[in-house]
Each structure stands twice: as structure tokens, then as C-alpha cells.
Design a protein around this nucleic acid. Structure first.
Length: 311
RNA sequence: AGGGGUAUAGCUCAAUUGGUAGAGUAGUGGACUCCAAAUCCAUUGGUUCAGCGUUCGAGUCGUUGUGCCCCUG
């Protein structure tokens, strides 16, 4: 390994990434950086499937429980925090292992072609644009964007307001900056993906959701709202929270909430699969072919040795 | 047991006076440059319960059977 080495373990939810990362960390003297847009929030434990202290086997985890209801976390904050974590791990002569399923966060950190630009999000401005669209009629914002950055507008669907508004915030056109270096790593990177047969993945997701309810997901969401997390915030828009809020309000029954969460998690997993599928650097491991995290991490370890990534 | 109703895509339902079937949803594929567990796009599925009949032509009409639902006893 050298001082630019970074190992990443990615893939859709419910494939067992966390356990594999821990097993690997034990083998190679590593520490783990969570790449998860929801696990950064304190108090959101069950719904985000955070690992429990007992499961960590003493391996230090970074970027879990780092902000509260006052913060709307984002990819840029993640990059800053992850860079610090990487430095911190290296200063201990350990190997950083990035592990998670938030594709945008991961790519923004590890690939040169995913520069986020220099303009921070501005919620007031975004609200202003939303009002503008409302007042001026559907398609107005897209027209503005087409006038400002035609090339970028061409890459965004006219209905995708979230991206249209973000693009309007920018001061320069980033539409084609990633063409050449999109998949060029900033690190000496070894990136592994975990995948599962679709029906087994879905069964795993459904089992996990059922278990979340048994563990007290409903109570956790109620407590989070109590502690100041606002409905509609990034944190409360996460899976496991946005589905429970209407249940707490008595708008839907529990069976409906459970089914909604299962369905939305399946959809999410599908999007993650689509996202990671196109990354040409990922070496995929089929979880179904293994008996557990230990065996998977052993194969990853062998691969790292074979590639002289570690000694 | 008798009377009535119903049977169409995996699910919930459409289909004018008979002109060989459409939505939503699920499923599937995709996009993604700081809201990303977010946001958005596209799209595959049907011997219309089964048999016989009327008709140039039946999801639609007649009849028999079967399943389910309701009412009466």
C-alpha cells in the first residue's frame, strides 16, 4: 500500500457491505469510513441499519452520527469530512476502507470527473426558483436554464426540477467536464461491489424491514421528530422515516407503512444497482456464492494481495 | 338448497348501441457533477374462467359448467 491507497466496498442496500468491511478491516489493519447519506444523522439508527457497537469488533467507524437535526448534510460536506477521516486513518498507519451505498457521495470523493463545482446549495434561492416556476408556469425554469447553459439543459429532463434548480444555482456550465476523467480515480483505488440475485435481494430487504419494526422503528421515528428532526428535511426524507411519519399521524395503518417501506427500499436498491453498474472500476462479488462476510472478505483480501495493493 | 351478482395484465379496475382490449400499480431498463435513502425518464406483460351456440364479427348476447360474493331458508 502507499499513501494514496483507498479501498472501497459498494453496492445496493442489504448485501452485507458493513460486515464485509469490518472483516476486511480486521485482516488488513484498516478503519472504516461510512459513505452513507443517512447514517451521518444522530438518532437515526434502526431505519438506517447502522451497525451496533458490538458488531464493529473494535474497528473505528467514521462519518456515522456526526450531525443532528440542525444540519442538512450534503455531498460536499461528505467530501470534506471523508478527506479528514482519510488523513486521520493514514496518520495511524492504517488503511482507509470506504463502505456504503450513497453513489453520488462515493463518486464525488473518489473520481476526478465528479467535481461538485464551487457553488454551495442555497435553500432560499431554491425556494425562490420554486415560487418562480409556480408563478410563471410550468417550464419557465427550464427555459431559463436553456438560455443560461443550453448544453447542460439538454442533459436534464424538463420535469427534473431538482436538477434544473441546482443547475440554475451554478455560475459555470459543468455539463461536459466529466467526459474524459469521469472514471479517473483520485486515489490508488481498489473498489469492490457486492451483488445478489434480485429475488434474494428483495427477500432480504423485506426481512430487514420486518426486523426494523420489531426493533422499534416506529418509536425511533417518533423520538427523532421529538428531538427536532423536521418532516421534509433530508434526514426525515430517508427510507424508514418518510414512510413512518404518516403512520404516526394516523393517516395510514401499519401494514401499509410496512409495505410502502419495503417497496421504496426495493426501488432504491434498483437505483443503486443502476448507479454502480456503470462504474467500470468495480470488481463484483456475488454474495449468494458465499457463506458469509468472512469468506467474502477473505477473497477480497486475496485479490488485494494478488494486485500488490497490500503486502 | 333456491334467487341474484361477478369472473379481463402479478394486483385493483376500464372498454360507448357486439367491431379481436386500456389505465393505475407492481415488475423491468435507464439517467444522475453538493436535497441523492433524493429527483426524474422509459417500458414488457392478457388464448378477456372453461365449453358449446347466435353472428360476417363476441370481453360484450344465449346456454352449460366451475370459482368467488350477497340475499332468502
Amino acid at each position: 500500500m502507499n499513501n494514496k491507497s483507498l479501498i472501497a466496498i459498494v453496492g445496493p442496500t442489504a448485501t452485507g457491505k458493513s460486515a464485509v468491511a469490518i472483516e476486511l478491516a480486521l485482516k488488513i489493519n484498516g478503519e472504516i469510513i461510512s459513505a452513507d447519506s443517512a447514517q451521518v444523522y444522530k438518532g437515526l439508527d434502526i431505519g438506517t441499519a447502522k451497525i451496533k457497537a458490538a458488531e464493529s469488533c473494535g474497528i473505528q467507524h467514521y462519518l456515522i452520527d456526526i450531525v443532528g437535526p440542525e444540519t442538512e448534510y450534503n455531498a460536499s460536506l461528505f467530501c470534506d469530512d471523508a478527506l479528514k477521516a482519510i488523513d486521520s486513518i493514514r496518520s495511524k498507519n492504517k488503511i482507509p476502507i470506504l463502505c456504503g451505498g450513497s453513489g453520488l457521495y462515493i463518486n464525488a470523493l473518489i473520481y476526478q470527473g465528479n467535481d461538485l463545482g464551487s457553488v454551495s446549495p442555497d435553500n432560499d434561492k431554491r425556494e425562490y426558483y420554486r415560487q418562480l416556476e409556480k408563478n410563471m408556469g410550468n417550464g419557465y425554469l427550464y427555459g431559463l436554464l436553456s438560455a443560461k447553459f443550453p448544453r447542460r439543459a439538454a442533459k436534464i429532463h424538463p420535469h427534473d426540477y431538482q436538477r434544473i434548480i441546482r443547475a440554475l444555482e451554478l455560475t459555470e456550465d459543468l455539463s461536459d467536464t466529466n467526459d474524459n476523467n469521469r472514471w479517473l480515480p483520485r486515489y490508488d483505488l481498489a473498489i469492490f461491489g457486492l451483488k445478489r440475485q434480485r429475488d434474494l435481494l428483495y427477500r432480504g430487504i423485506e426481512k430487514r424491514v420486518d426486523s426494523m419494526f420489531v426493533q422499534g422503528l416506529k418509536e425511533e421515528v417518533a423520538a427523532a421528530l421529538e428531538h427536532g428532526y423536521l418532516p421534509g428535511s433530508n434526514a426525515m426524507s430517508a427510507l424508514g422515516y418518510k414512510e413512518i411519519i404518516p403512520l404516526l399521524r394516523g393517516e395510514i395503518d401499519e401494514a401499509t407503512a410496512i409495505n410502502n417501506l419495503k417497496k421504496n427500499t426495493r426501488h432504491f436498491a434498483k437505483r443503486q444497482i443502476t448507479w454502480f453498474k456503470r462504474d467500470p472500476n468495480i470488481l463484483w462479488f456475488d454474495v449468494d456464492a458465499y457463506t458469509g462476510a468472512k469468506e467474502i472478505s477473505a477473497d477480497i483480501f486475496n485479490r488485494l494481495q494478488q494486485d500488490k495493493f497490500i503486502n
